[in-house]
Design a protein around this nucleic acid. Structure first.
Lengths: 244, 244
DNA sequence: CGCGCCCGTTAACCCGTCGTTAAGAATTCG
DNA sequence: CGAATTCTTAACGACGGGTTAACGGGCGCG
């Protein structure tokens, strides 16, 4: 797989860390753009359309979270967040705002690069299901919004489709409940997971062979849900590739 | 195996000890840089990007702890701390600040060299988010939050994952109990290690081949714990026979 | 030799979260 | 305008995870 020179935008106010990041990434043959402020970052992002963003939270002008939300309004570029704080709160908030991954300082070079690779891999993927999802005898085609089981057509409601899309986009990864809430119902919904649970239940009733013992739509208690279709070719996300 | 000449930065004010260290390390074919002060150390570290730091606590200008914290803001170079005082407090504080290992003066040459080797080994390995951890037949993928043993999936609870993450970030090095408590439960938890011990126990029950004799999740009495996953090479296949 | 500290393990309890059903709003469509 | 479908909300049982307490063992120290 020939790697076109990916372009990465670094948003970091502290020159020292910016330098470290730049050297690290350039050495991996990435093209690098830098922005010291959130305001500048928006301009750069629009102009260069980078393949990935590295954002340090706690920028001088305006919160980093705000920047993420604003970028997310018009783009789905993978965003890797960099933060000194180890608090879970911060992490959740960033992911909630639309970040894809999270690295806490101090970070190791291999770790950061791994996240970057993962992000780029994710970004390279087809945006939404051109390949139908398989759950045993049930097949869901998100692209044309059609689902059929072993013997008959199955009907999914709009919200059910959106939940599935949200889960499928991060194929195999756990999707936090807050992320699901935001992506399905919009940002105004707090943390009220009651509705979500109802739809998970009804989804399971439709796609799981034995809804009592979920196999494809799995709960991660306290975190969220994970969707694992039994299709093989979908190895895009969890690739064990450790190439150099 | 051919060992590339690792570069080690010694931060030590007392010329005599510095000399001893230098000779010791050069004899092992390491390249050595020296810095008598914390201020100088930062410059050298940034310029030469050494593979490991040896820091003497109690430097003239500014505390060694401060230096560690400042380095840790942008790098995860392995740091071995050298301390004259035998106080546990000192060790803990250093590890808490981000050091990886410690040696108390007077030290024996073999001991120091062992710590150095361990540190370098750790630095060479990738404590990355996307490489699964191998524990004999058990494989833990922190990125995807998925764990499977020889025959079946293994379920880890959220706290168990967080403990593992915290340990894996410092792969192979000692993680003080305080650090674990803070990273897993947040800063409000004092030093109540009771809960931690319970989770260590249940983790061992899930990932250790023989939980009675821990091999991967090792206790450092009075200090903390250490996680030593298999090397990536023989992760999947080998069912390593360990009978003692 | 005995005492105390630290660690490991088990078990009990409490509370949060999850899954499900059902009934009332909202929306769509004929 | 009415009916059907969809979404929301409520309620409640069940389960699992987290916390704490209690006990036993190993080890060092007096």
């Amino acid at each position: 797989m020939t790697r076109a020179p990916h372009q990465i935008l670094i948003i970091e106010d502290e020159p020292v860390i910016r330098e470290v990041l730049r050297v690290l990434l350039v050495r991996e043959a990435y093209r690098v753009i830098e922005a010291p402020t959130a305001a500048r970052a928006q301009i750069e992002a629009r102009n260069h359309k980078p393949d990935l963003l590295i954002v340090d939270l706690g920028l001088p002008d305006g919160d980093g979270l705000d920047l993420i939300r604003r970028i997310r309004a018009w783009s789905s570029i993978p965003i890797v967040v960099l933060s000194a704080r180890t608090l879970e709160e911060q992490k959740i908030a960033a992911l909630d705002a639309g970040a894809d991954d999270f690295v806490t300082k101090p970070f190791s070079a291999p770790e950061l690069l791994a996240r970057v690779r993962a992000g780029l891999r994710r970004g390279a993927r087809a945006p939404s299901g051109d390949a139908p999802l398989g759950f045993g005898a049930v097949q869901v085609d998100l692209a044309v919004r059609r689902t059929h089981g072993a013997h008959a057509e199955i009907h999914l409601t709009p919200v059910e489709y959106r939940v599935l899309e949200s889960l499928a986009r991060r194929g195999g990864m756990v999707v936090p409940q807050r992320v699901l809430l935001r992506e399905v119902w919009g940002p105004d919904r707090g943390q009220d997971t009651r509705g979500l649970r109802v739809f998970i239940s009804s989804l399971r009733a439709k796609i799981e062979p034995d809804p009592r013992r979920p196999r494809y739509l799995v709960t991660e208690t306290g975190i969220g849900y994970r969707l694992c279709p039994d299709d093989a070719a979908d190895a895009a996300t969890a690739g064990p590739s450790l190439e150099r």
